[in-house]
Amino acid sequence: MAYSDKVIDHYENPRNVGSFDKNDPQIGTGVVGAPECGDVMKLQIQVDEAGRITDAKFKTFGCGSAIASSSLATEWLKGKTLDEAEDIKNTAIVQELSLPPVKIHCSVLAEDAIKAAINDYRTKSNAGETEAARAEA
């Protein structure tokens, strides 16, 4: 199977590989997939007080298309608000990377990872607010 040039580029020069401290309240972490299925994606976002994503990082175990999908997702996430980020659709990733039908699940996984990271951030910041409110009371 031939990979598109964009997939190859992301594979060879992945953007934003790395990890943030997942306990940092500014960080949202999403881990999706399972090793026995052949892909695990970890996607992290750093969010400022205004709810805007200032940075994103990923680590992926999976095929080249899975790596490219998550690498691309981190590029797209930077600068977006959480609401805008939530609107990123897997089909946009498929189109951008010219993924063949057998690789669509890689883009779905990337969309799931984005949503999981946003959820994690929101859960943490809600918990943080509740705690802060409790401390004030």
């Binding site: 590989v17 695990v40 994606m41 680590k59 992926t60 175990f61």
Partner: peptide, 16 residues
């Protein structure tokens, strides 16, 4: 491995 979350977990001592 540099971009593998599994390798990172392994290095952190997590039993996968």
């Amino acid at each position: 491995r540099k971009m593998s979350p599994l390798y990172e977990m392994h290095q952190e001592g997590i039993d996968l």
